[in-house]
Lab assay of single mutants.
Amino acid sequence: AEIMKKTDFDKVASEYTKIGTISTTGEMSPLDAREDLIKKADEKGADVVVLTSGQTENKIHGTADIYKKK
């Protein structure tokens, strides 16, 4: 799966169907969080990951919607 910015995804959204939401939390780098989200998306058969939230304090927390091409 590839990560797309919401603004970029909005241009092609009609080509995809939302298949779920994924999240990651833990003591990790932003890059590790990104890789974890991609891994989870791949496991669910998603083609595209669109980040919906991200937070960093002591731990990273990120959520994303996942989509499959129609």
Rank of each mutant, 00 (worst) to 15 (best):
E27G: 13
T24S: 06
A1Q: 01
K68S: 04
K39M: 06
T25D: 14
I22A: 02
E43R: 08
D65L: 03
M4C: 07
D8K: 04
D10F: 05
D65W: 02
E27A: 13
S14E: 10
V48F: 01
F9K: 00
R34D: 06
I19L: 08
T7K: 12
E57D: 12
K18N: 06
K39V: 05
I60S: 11
L51C: 13
G26H: 13
F9N: 01
V50D: 00
D47N: 07
I66V: 05
L51T: 03
K11Q: 08
V50I: 08
Y16T: 02
L31A: 15
V48E: 02
A64P: 01
D32C: 12
Y16N: 01
Q55W: 15
K68Q: 11
I22F: 02
E27C: 15
E2C: 15
T56W: 13
D8W: 04
D42E: 12
E57A: 13
E57R: 08
E35N: 13
K68V: 12
I19M: 06
K18R: 09
V49R: 01
P30I: 12
A46W: 00
A46P: 00
K40L: 09
E27H: 12
K5F: 14
K5W: 14
M4S: 02
E35C: 12
A46Q: 00
D32L: 14
G20N: 00
G62W: 15
S29N: 09
T24L: 10
N58M: 10
L37S: 01
K69L: 06
D32G: 08
G54N: 12
K59F: 15
K44Y: 13
T25Q: 11
I3C: 06
P30V: 11
D65M: 01
V12P: 01
E35R: 13
L31C: 13
K40H: 05
N58C: 12
I60H: 11
A33Q: 10
G45P: 00
K39Y: 05
G20A: 04
S53L: 14
K39C: 07
I60A: 13
V48I: 10
A33Y: 08
D42G: 11
I3G: 00
L37M: 06
A46I: 02
G45I: 02
T21I: 07
A41T: 00
N58L: 10
E43N: 06
D42V: 14
T63Y: 09
G20I: 02
T17N: 08
T25A: 11
D36Y: 11
K59L: 15
A1I: 13
L37Q: 00
V50Q: 01
I22L: 06
N58I: 10
T7N: 09
I3N: 00
I66G: 02
G26N: 10
E2N: 10
T24E: 03
G54V: 11
T21G: 03
F9P: 00
T52N: 11
K5A: 13
V50A: 00
L51K: 03
Y67N: 04
D32S: 06
D10K: 08
E2T: 15
V49A: 04
I3Q: 01
A1T: 06
K18S: 05
M28D: 06
A41G: 04
L31R: 14
E2P: 03
K40V: 04
M4P: 00
T56N: 10
I19R: 00
T7H: 12
T25F: 11
T7P: 08
K59I: 14
D65H: 04
G62P: 08
D32Y: 07
K68R: 09
V49Q: 00
G45A: 04
A33R: 09
S23N: 09
G45M: 06
H61V: 15
A33T: 07
F9G: 00
E35K: 13
H61W: 14
A1R: 02
D65C: 10
E27Y: 13
A41R: 00
Y16F: 07
S29W: 10
T24M: 09
V48D: 00
V12Q: 03
K5H: 11
L37G: 00
G62F: 15
V49D: 01
E43P: 00
K5L: 14
Y16K: 02
D47G: 01
R34V: 13
T63N: 07
D65K: 02
A13K: 13
A13P: 00
I19E: 01
T25P: 07
A46C: 03
K39T: 06
M28E: 07
D36P: 03
K39W: 04
G45S: 05
T56A: 10
G62Q: 15
A64V: 07
K69H: 10
L51A: 01
A64I: 04
A13N: 05
K69W: 04
T56R: 08
V50M: 02
I22V: 08
H61P: 09
K68P: 03
E2F: 09
N58V: 11
A46M: 01
E43A: 13
G26D: 11
T63K: 09
T56G: 14
K6L: 06
L31V: 11
Y16R: 01
S53Y: 10
K44A: 15
T52V: 11
G62A: 15
K69N: 04
